[in-house]
Each structure stands twice: as C-alpha cells, then as structure tokens.
Amino acid sequence: MDTTIRNADEKINIDHLVHEHVAMASLCSYGTGGEADFLITPNNLGELRAALLWAKERSLPTTILGGGSNVLISDKGVEGLVILTTGLTEHHVRGRIFCTQSGLPLDTAINVAIERSLSGLEPLGGLPGTVGGAVRGNASAGGLWISELIEWVDYLDKDGSFHRYQGMDGGFSYKKSPFTDSESIIYEIAFRLIPNKKTSEARLRKEQSRIERMETGQFDFPSAGCMFKNPHGISAGQLIDEAGLKGRSFGGARVSEHHGNFIVNHDHHASASDIYELSRIVEHEIEKRNKIHLEREVILLGRWNN
C-alpha cells in the first residue's frame, strides 16, 4: 500500500526509503546488535513526518537512532521502525544563532561554528555522536553542559506535530533533558554562541578537548563511553577502579584498563549480551561493596527481556 503525507501541498511517498531487515551493528559505536525490522533515514522534515505516519498506520513502534555512540542494541534486533537521523544535517547561521538539524555530528557542528566565527562549543570537541543525541542526554565536557548554549529546540511529537522548546524554560539537569524519557523527536537545535574572529585559537581549544578525550582511552576499543552515570558527588569510574574491576571480562567484553566506567568490545567479537552481562556484574559488585546503585547511562535499544 502506497503511503503519502501532505506537507506544504507536496505528497511524499516514502515506501522506497523504508528498508527491511537492516543490520544494526555498523550503526553503533559498539559494533554489536541484531537487525532492525524496518529502517528509514529521512533527509528532511517531510520525510520524517511521513516516517512517523508510516509506522503509525501499521501500529509499529518507532525507535530513534542518531550516531549510535551511547546505545547498546540487542542481539535480537529492534522491533518496528528505526528512524536514523543522520540524514538530517542542514545548518545555518543567523547572527549569533547557529541552527543545525539533529543528525549533524557534534564534532562537525563545532567545526562549522568556528568557521563561521562563533565560539562556545569547543569544550565538547571530540565527543562522538550527533547534536541531537548530545542535547537529548545533555552532554558535558570541560565544565560545559550543552544546555547552557541552547536557545531553542524544535521537535516533533509521536504524531508528527511540530513544537518548539525554549532553552530558557529549563528542564535540563545532569545527563538529562526534557527529551530524555520522551517519545519526542528532536529535529533542529539553535545555539546562541559568542562572536569570535580568532578562529585559530578556537580550533586549538577544540583540538585540546579532543586530545584530552583520546587520552582517556575511550577510542582504543569499540565502546559507548561511560556505561554508568556518576552517583551524586562520586565518580562511577573511581568506584569501579577501587573495587578492582578494571580488566574484568565477560565473553568478549571487558572493563577498560584506562577508565573504569568504560566497558569495551575488547576483541571486536563481543555480543551485546556480553556487554550487558558485564555491566550487570559491575553494577552488582558496586552495590555489594559500596551500597550504591549505579544507574546506566548507555541506552538499551531493541528486544531486551530485562
């Protein structure tokens, strides 16, 4: 059955854009996971809305995936329609406002802003993933929370209706945003940045942030960065280190020798289940030793029976 949606008097047929039984391992930083039942990569607002309608007409759940840098995809795959946002990369500048669609890689967005003589995002240099993912999880680095620079966020609800969230409305906290536990889909973000003609200095600051991140060993092996959020006032990595869990392994997964809060795909053959089970072991050991429950930061996507 052909599916169309009217947007600005234009009918959009997306059946040819929807792919069935798509392998997901190459779409996440862990390099693990099964297949998506269906997957689409919309390139504009009309296609994004059409994708939501396509799933709704078939009573299919939808899963939003950006750069795949903070997720663990089930070996059993993902039910329904996966909407991959990496085709949404348009961006523009209006004075001090830098607007970008959610699928633009964050590192690319920082480079673009610098090229347009706008500063502020440099401390986030080297963070993987998309701008939308960074906003959803309120990413931070170098003392900066990305929410500090947000002017507004344009998003769609599950029915495809368009909304705007003003940055001044708050709702952001540690590793959380108004979109973290929501079915809303971030479409475009506007940042209010600082005019800066000294682009060479800005590039150096950004590069230094990237180097510092590399030195943590995050990119030595496939990983999703920090597995757990930091408990209040305590470093999860320090707790894991003090518990002697660095180097602990399960299947092909291992707690990083460089950073206790990284669980890595050490031999490049770990399953998602290996990584998940090792995270459970670490969680159990810290709760037993410190009476502290570690909250997972990495998002589980797909068919998990837990």
Score class of each variant (00 low, 15 high):
residue 2 D to C: 01
residue 2 D to F: 07
residue 8 A to Q: 15
residue 13 N to E: 11
residue 14 I to R: 03
residue 21 H to G: 05
residue 23 A to L: 07
residue 26 S to F: 08
residue 27 L to Q: 06
residue 29 S to H: 05
residue 31 G to P: 08
residue 38 F to R: 07
residue 38 F to I: 09
residue 39 L to W: 02
residue 41 T to Y: 00
residue 42 P to W: 01
residue 43 N to L: 03
residue 52 L to T: 07
residue 54 W to D: 09
residue 54 W to C: 03
residue 58 R to H: 08
residue 59 S to E: 15
residue 59 S to T: 11
residue 60 L to T: 12
residue 61 P to H: 11
residue 62 T to H: 05
residue 65 L to A: 07
residue 67 G to Q: 14
residue 67 G to W: 14
residue 70 N to P: 06
residue 74 S to I: 02
residue 74 S to K: 00
residue 78 V to Q: 06
residue 79 E to F: 00
residue 85 T to E: 03
residue 85 T to S: 06
residue 86 T to I: 10
residue 87 G to M: 02
residue 90 E to P: 02
residue 93 V to S: 03
residue 96 R to A: 13
residue 97 I to E: 09
residue 97 I to H: 05
residue 103 G to R: 01
residue 104 L to F: 00
residue 105 P to N: 10
residue 105 P to M: 10
residue 105 P to Y: 06
residue 106 L to T: 10
residue 108 T to Y: 01
residue 111 N to P: 01
residue 112 V to M: 01
residue 115 E to L: 07
residue 115 E to T: 06
residue 119 S to F: 01
residue 123 P to A: 13
residue 124 L to F: 13
residue 126 G to V: 07
residue 128 P to M: 11
residue 129 G to Y: 02
residue 129 G to L: 10
residue 131 V to Y: 00
residue 134 A to G: 08
residue 135 V to C: 00
residue 138 N to P: 06
residue 139 A to V: 12
residue 139 A to H: 12
residue 141 A to H: 09
residue 142 G to C: 11
residue 145 W to C: 06
residue 146 I to A: 01
residue 146 I to M: 08
residue 148 E to H: 06
residue 148 E to Q: 15
residue 150 I to C: 00
residue 151 E to P: 04
residue 160 G to L: 05
residue 164 R to G: 08
residue 164 R to E: 11
residue 172 F to G: 00
residue 174 Y to M: 08
residue 179 F to A: 04
residue 179 F to Y: 10
residue 180 T to D: 10
residue 185 I to V: 15
residue 191 F to S: 02
residue 191 F to Q: 04
residue 193 L to E: 05
residue 195 P to L: 13
residue 195 P to C: 08
residue 199 T to H: 06
residue 203 R to M: 10
residue 203 R to G: 00
residue 204 L to R: 13
residue 208 Q to T: 14
residue 210 R to V: 09
residue 211 I to N: 10
residue 213 R to F: 05
residue 216 T to G: 03
residue 216 T to D: 04
residue 217 G to H: 04
residue 218 Q to N: 06
residue 220 D to E: 14
residue 222 P to C: 08
residue 222 P to N: 13
residue 223 S to Y: 05
residue 226 C to T: 08
residue 230 N to Q: 12
residue 232 H to N: 12
residue 232 H to G: 03
residue 232 H to Q: 15
residue 233 G to I: 10
residue 234 I to S: 13
residue 235 S to M: 03
residue 236 A to G: 10
residue 239 L to P: 09
residue 242 E to Y: 03
residue 242 E to S: 11
residue 243 A to I: 02
residue 243 A to T: 01
residue 244 G to A: 05
residue 247 G to T: 11
residue 248 R to L: 15
residue 252 G to A: 12
residue 254 R to W: 07
residue 254 R to A: 14
residue 255 V to D: 07
residue 257 E to G: 04
residue 259 H to F: 04
residue 259 H to M: 05
residue 265 N to A: 13
residue 266 H to Q: 13
residue 267 D to L: 09
residue 268 H to C: 09
residue 269 H to T: 14
residue 272 A to H: 03
residue 273 S to R: 11
residue 275 I to G: 14
residue 277 E to L: 14
residue 279 S to N: 05
residue 279 S to V: 08
residue 281 I to V: 14
residue 281 I to F: 15
residue 282 V to L: 11
residue 283 E to P: 04
residue 286 I to Q: 08
residue 287 E to L: 13
residue 290 N to L: 04
residue 292 I to W: 12
residue 295 E to K: 11
residue 296 R to G: 13
residue 304 W to E: 15
